[in-house]
């Protein structure tokens, strides 16, 4: 899958190595931003991405592992844990009801 409409997004997964640190912080920030839109945001280790995830967000250093672990998902890699342009763009696109591209 290479793109998804905002209305079809129900679950976003933030993946990191242990699901212990950075992904937790990013997920908590996103959860607050997207709660009103009814989108569930969770965090998991990169090798345990759930099948019902619509979008996977992970650090660029983990993108390859995420692509192997969840090959059919739209993957948004980021570099900075807070305020990354890719994540900011994702939120803006979802809030405006646009199409999210991998």
């Amino acid at each position: 899958m290479t793109s998804i409409e905002s209305k079809d997004i129900h679950k976003i997964v933030v993946a990191c190595d242990a699901g212990m640190g950075s992904s937790v912080m990013l997920a908590s920030t996103l959860r607050k931003e997207l709660k009103k839109l009814g989108i569930e945001v969770t965090h998991t280790p990169v090798n345990q991405i759930p099948g019902d995830a619509d979008i996977v967000i992970c650090h660029v250093g983990l993108a390859q592992r995420a692509a192997v672990s969840a090959p059919s998902k739209i993957l948004i890699p980021f570099q900075v844990f807070l305020g990354d342009p890719a994540v900011t763009k994702l939120v803006a696109t979802i809030k405006s009801g646009g199409t999210v591209h991998a």
Binding site: D17, M20, S22, P45, L82
Partner: peptide, 12 residues
């Protein structure tokens, strides 16, 4: 993570 802060933790 920014602002002079790091959050070291272990691996899986």
């Amino acid at each position: 993570v920014g602002e002079g802060v790091a959050i070291p933790h272990g691996t899986l």
